[in-house]
Simulated assay, not measured.
Amino acid sequence: MIRLCAPNELTEGQSRGFAVAELKLLVVRREGQVYAYQNRCPHRGIPLEWQPDQFLDHSNSLIQCATHGALFLIESGECVAGPCSGQSLKALSCREDADGIWITD
């Protein structure tokens, strides 16, 4: 398991990016649940954010690719709009406890 951060370092409605060895990933907290994905758009294989830790659209309800505007559901990673519609972000197993948010893959 790899510890990403303390639980209080990812607030409700917030997204953060991390690099673990060669793996770039993003985590989002929505309705108290933490979701983790590879930071890689399925359309072009490029990172999603336009600025550090900026992965969400203006409403903070969808993950957005800054390059082509593709929109992904936070809960599943499924692309619901844009050039990769029907594809999904690669989900990573994660868990949270009092000591941190962890990637378990």
Score class of each variant (00 low, 15 high):
K24P: 00
E78W: 01
S59V: 03
E78A: 14
L23E: 14
D97G: 06
G13E: 04
V34Y: 02
Q54Y: 12
N39F: 03
Q33P: 01
K24M: 02
L23W: 01
F55Y: 15
H68D: 05
H58S: 14
F72E: 05
R40E: 13
I2W: 00
I103K: 03
S85Y: 09
A36P: 07
T11S: 14
P47L: 08
E22F: 00
L10D: 04
V27W: 01
W102R: 06
G17R: 07
C5H: 05
T11D: 12
D97A: 04
D57A: 10
A81P: 00
D99N: 15
Q54M: 13
G77L: 07
G69N: 08
A81Q: 13
D97W: 11
V27D: 06
Q38N: 02
L26H: 01
D57F: 07
D57Y: 09
P52D: 13
G17Y: 07
S76I: 04
Q51I: 02
I46P: 00
C84Q: 06
E22S: 15
G45T: 05
N60I: 00
I46F: 06
D53A: 03
C79Y: 08
L92N: 05
S15A: 15
E12K: 11
E78I: 03
E22Q: 15
N60E: 09
S93K: 13
N60C: 13
Q33F: 11
G69V: 11
C65M: 10
P42M: 04
D99R: 13
L25S: 00
P42G: 04
A21S: 14
G86M: 07
P52L: 09
W50N: 03
A19P: 00
H58N: 12
F18R: 05
Q14T: 02
L71D: 07
Y37P: 09
